[in-house]
């Protein structure tokens, strides 16, 4: 598990997506091959924007899992910490994903938090 997590650090610690120079689309999580252009695609890493909005969400095991569309059109499935509605604006946050075990490594990465209406939210 340690090498598998370690390989993804670059993509998880910040929002680094794949950009296809052929079709101009962004994909997250990162891809080796462009799902649209296949062999013709030219994939490279691209750090993308910090803010987006919630397209849809569900509550799973008490956590809010949302489909977030970032400003450049990239869609990502991510956890949102706090209460949101469809259309809510969110920004990236650095959080714990979990841990391997009590004595194992800690997984960190990007989640999202609501931008506005902090005052209106209830815990």
């Amino acid at each position: 598990m340690v090498p598998r997590f370690w390989r993804k650090i670059k993509y998880r610690y910040d929002v680094v997506a794949s950009y296809c120079e052929n079709c101009g689309n962004y994909y997250y999580p990162q891809r080796e091959i462009c799902p649209k252009c296949r062999r013709k695609g030219k994939i490279k890493d691209a750090k993308i924007c910090d803010e987006g909005r919630v397209l849809s969400y569900t509550i799973l095991d008490g956590k809010c899992i949302a489909l977030v569309e970032l400003e450049n059109g990239t869609k990502m499935l991510t956890e949102v910490c706090g209460k949101v509605e469809i259309g809510s604006k969110v920004r990236k946050a650095f959080r714990r994903y979990g841990e391997e075990s009590e004595d194992g490594i800690i997984y960190y990465g990007t989640k999202f938090v609501p931008i506005e209406s902090d005052k209106k939210q209830k815990a």
């Binding site: 910490c81 946050a93 650095f94 959080r95 714990r96 994903y97 800690i106 960190y108």
Partner: peptide
């Protein structure tokens, strides 16, 4: 802190 925050996450923010 939130349940998924610690010294490292706050340091990054």
């Amino acid at each position: 802190p939130d349940v998924d925050e610690d010294t490292a996450t706050m340091a990054v923010e």
